[in-house]
Design a protein around this nucleic acid. Structure first.
Lengths: 202, 202
DNA sequence: GGTTATATGGACACAGCGTACACAGCGGTG
DNA sequence: CACCGCTGTGTACGCTGTGTCCATATAACC
């Protein structure tokens, strides 16, 4: 009965009946990611996502347990997680390159704002916090530790260092400036972090 | 005319008219701080603060521009800012002691939860972010930089190091574990942070 | 004592969340 | 082909919290 207007650009649904579940899920995730990049977590509401995706709020409630979970899924849908870690023979260059790339990602794209707001939201949303650790920070940390471990095996670093703490002193320091922003997050800052640790302070 | 029941324990107001502004402000701040420590930022609403303080919401809106501002003020009212920085002749011991004390504050009291949630809220509340930097993180950072500068003057540290980046690699690393909590924030971790930087990684 | 500033209770509109119900179409089974 | 379960859709409801507006009462000031 209802006329359909199959419009790929703007979903613009009207009919009442069922649409393929996968399609609806995909459209919701895309809409969530786009809304996140456009407005940040502040303007990110279930209602807006539903409207933007041309779906009903009920559908979203059916598939995602919380706003945070939807936001994280949407973020991953739009921002393909480029977790590749270069691994040359030079640990100093590898760490520096990775940190500088991270600084640029955070500064030059909207990803930085989204990441910081996701972390912010995670402080009062345990489920989001768990999902973030499991799917984002955990894997990234593991890759960094792996790189450090290989450098230790090659004899480029002391064999007795605690890789995990080093990760906190490199990436954690960047997150500190991202989240608290007393001082700007610059490429020089990233280089200094590596230099401080490699050379020692005295 | 109206009988007063000066009750320090439970304000239990009834009358409608004006009360001393300072008294009301103080009661609101105390209520805000207590509510913050008890329920965290998630359950921190203007309505609850007003009810807890026996005041009207209108009064709160009149004196505080945003929820974040009220929360920060309440936090400072309850948690006296113990910003004292020991400064002996031993920079390693000073840094270690300060970091260990910070770790204990964050782990063994409710302050850690409140701090992390304030930072979280600040990610979507520019006014709160500015207030936090100005009144909390800024002064603390300045004290740490000062300590490092003195150690450099005494020749205990290289004279060309960037103190600010070192602060990010010590306290920032702790905040990283507080906010993202992939790994626990322990006393050993704090000691390792200082050790990593002082000795260098190779 | 008169004036002014301000706290109070109550009401309002608004946004967003979460839930409920009836209906509509798709996909399988018999 | 008929049927039925799953699932998306539209709509409505109650709830909480926000932000704002009154009229009123009263403390603080002159």
């Amino acid at each position: 009965m209802a006329e359909f207007t199959p419009d790929a650009q703007t979903p613009a649904r009207r009919g009442r009946g069922r649409r393929p579940a996968d399609q609806v899920r995909a459209e919701i995730l895309t809409a969530a990611g786009e809304l996140l990049l456009a407005e940040g977590m502040a303007g990110f509401t279930i209602e807006k996502v539903a409207a933007h995706a041309g779906a009903s709020r009920m559908t979203i409630y059916k598939w995602w347990p919380s706003k945070g979970a939807l936001a994280l899924d949407g973020y991953f849908t739009v921002v393909a997680p480029t977790l590749a870690f270069a691994d040359t023979a030079d640990i100093v260059a590898d760490l520096t390159n990775q940190l500088v790339a991270f600084v640029h990602l955070v500064r030059d794209t909207t990803a930085g704002r989204v990441i910081s707001q996701l972390i912010g939201q995670a402080q009062t949303d345990p489920e989001l916090a768990a999902a973030y650790r499991e799917r984002y920070s955990g894997p990234r940390r593991a890759l960094a530790v792996e790189t450090l471990t290989r450098a230790m095996a090659r004899g480029q670093l002391r064999p007795d260092i605690d890789s995990e703490s080093v990760v906190d002193q490199l990436w954690g320091a960047c997150y500190h400036r991202l989240l608290i922003a007393d001082l700007p997050l610059t490429e020089d800052f990233a280089r200094t972090l590596v230099d401080n640790l490699i050379r020692g302070l005295r």
